[in-house]
Every structure is written in structure tokens, then in C-alpha cells.
Computed example of a mutant assay.
Amino acid sequence: MRDAAKHRTHVTIRVSPEQRAQLERLAAGMPLGPFMLWRSLDPDSPPPRSRDKFPVKDHIAISQVLARLGDSRIANNINQLTRLAHTGSLPVSPETEDALRLVCRYLVEMRRLLLRALGLSDVPP
């Protein structure tokens, strides 16, 4: 056990659910303990680096999945199907149209989740 960990003590405070929600919003994913220490004892310094609540186990694998999603011809294929459907060359039932819309939503959501897992959620689509 580290020396610093041997000498730590607990501090407990009671907050309302609304106050906890406000603290969590202010912490923006940072664990509440380190966030509250930083804000109360050293607010002028940069926030401490700490692990996210949902740490990524393998950044390389997630990056590769995101790259393959970008390199795939999925978007182009969907665009071609849409063009064929609009010109009448591809008859599309309402069920097929709903399925294609669902696939598009899934792809957008997969990309968003992968970017968030990599800490790149501010990257434009």
C-alpha cells in the first residue's frame, strides 16, 4: 500500500438528489471525490487527471473499429440504394425503407459511441 493511502481519512457529506446531480454535471464525468477536492482546495489549478467512470480497455482496438467503419463502403452502398429507390429502379416496400432508416441510425450511433469511448466526442460527424 502506498504511504499516502495509509494516511487518508474519509469525509462524508449529505446532499440532496438535486445537489448531487448538479455536482455530477459540474464534474463532467470526473469522479466526485477528486472533483470536490480540486474545487474546494485548489480551484485555480488545472483539474486533476483521473480515470473516467468508463475506462476504455483497448484504445487501439476501438480506433481500428472506427477506422474500418470509416473505410467501409457502407455509407456509399446506402447512398446507392437510396438513389436507386428514388429513381424507381429499386422497388422498396415501407418495411424495407424502415429497415434502411434503422441501419442508418445504428451506424450513426455506433460512430458516436466509438468516438465517445476514445474521448473524441467533439469531433464533427
Rank of each mutant, 00 (worst) to 15 (best):
S40M: 05
L120R: 15
I78T: 03
T82E: 04
P31I: 00
S40C: 07
L41D: 01
I13M: 05
L37G: 06
C104T: 04
T9H: 13
Q80T: 12
R25H: 11
L26P: 07
L32R: 07
P46H: 02
D71G: 07
R105L: 13
P46V: 01
P34H: 09
K6C: 08
M30K: 05
W38I: 01
I74H: 02
D3K: 03
E97A: 15
A99Y: 09
Q64E: 13
K57Q: 13
L100Q: 08
R112K: 11
G33T: 01
M110A: 14
H7Y: 09
E95H: 13
H59N: 09
M1R: 04
T12R: 12
A27D: 04
S89N: 14
A85K: 06
D122C: 01
R116H: 13
L23R: 05
L107D: 05
S89Y: 11
F35W: 07
N77C: 11
T87Q: 08
V108W: 06
H7L: 09
P43I: 09
R8L: 00
E18R: 10
P94K: 06
E95T: 14
V56T: 14
P46S: 02
A21H: 10
T82Q: 05
L66D: 00
I74L: 04
W38G: 02
L118W: 02
R105N: 11
